[in-house]
Simulated assay, not measured.
Amino acid sequence: MPSALSPADALNRLLATMARLRDPVGGCPWDLVQDFATIAPYTIEEAYEVEDAIHRGDRGALLDELGDLLFQTVYHAQMAEEEGAFAFADVAETIHRKMVLRHPHVFADSEARTAAEQTQAWEAQKAGERAARAETGTLAGIPLALPALTRAQKLTRRAGRVRFDWPDAAAVLDKLEEEAAELRAELPTADPARLADEVGDLLFVLANLARKLDLDAEACLRGANRKFERRFGVIEATLAQDGRTPADVSLEQMEELWKQAKRQERGET
């Protein structure tokens, strides 16, 4: 059930809790020694846990994870306030102003826009904001801390706006084959630096293929991870019925069980 508290009251309670945790007198020893750099990994982790709850369709978990993610924002804002840089109210007001500015068709003018037109206008507005921050260059402002696959997609999407791009997904597949051949050519020498370079190129092209297909490369890989975990779990569960583990059977036997798990998922007999 929705809380009886108003949003403002609930938020004020959370802000007070955060301030208490960081109080030099009687606060939490762990919280008191944290800084922006040490908290940042938790912020990223909580965002992924929100995505996981959404993927699983678990609204109870989503409620919990959104709270954890909000707490991260409150945490950073509290530390910034202690430095005299800004406070949570400034964070909220800044995003409020930004959303109003980026949606003039809603808040300022009566011009109707399609979703595609609004996306174009949004990107133009962000480009203006980057220019105001003296961030020059087509690729400026794409955070280094993004997951590598996500950053690859953002980099090449930005480059695509100035027509530096493959024409279609088929062309990216051709490039993928080229990069795979280059990697294969490096295998006999097994030079770690060269192999790392070629594997990086291969991953970069794969990220572009996902972009060309309007897919999120990170989401695709997370899905593949979940599928691997699920199917390997079937292998272990099947073996456990006979009191065995993967260490007790051959690779060929595990491969056959893997194929069985795939058939089960597809509803095949």
Rank of each mutant, 00 (worst) to 15 (best):
M1L: 01
P2Q: 14
L11I: 00
A16M: 03
R22C: 00
P24F: 02
F36K: 09
A37S: 14
T38F: 10
I39L: 13
T43I: 07
T43W: 13
E45M: 12
A47F: 09
V50H: 00
A53E: 02
I54N: 00
D64H: 08
L69F: 15
E81N: 09
E82C: 10
G84N: 05
F86H: 04
D90Y: 05
A92M: 07
T94F: 04
M99D: 08
H105S: 10
W122P: 00
Q125K: 10
A132N: 10
A132M: 11
R133K: 15
E135Q: 15
E135G: 09
T136K: 13
L139G: 14
L139C: 14
L144A: 15
L149T: 08
A152T: 12
Q153D: 04
R158T: 12
V162T: 12
R163A: 10
P167M: 06
A169M: 00
A185Q: 13
P188S: 10
T189R: 15
T189N: 14
A190E: 08
R194M: 07
A196G: 04
A196C: 06
L209A: 15
A219D: 07
N225A: 13
D242L: 05
R244I: 00
R244Q: 14
T245Q: 05
P246I: 00
P246G: 00
D248C: 07
Q253W: 04
K259R: 13
Q260R: 11
R263K: 06
E265S: 05
R266V: 02
R266C: 03
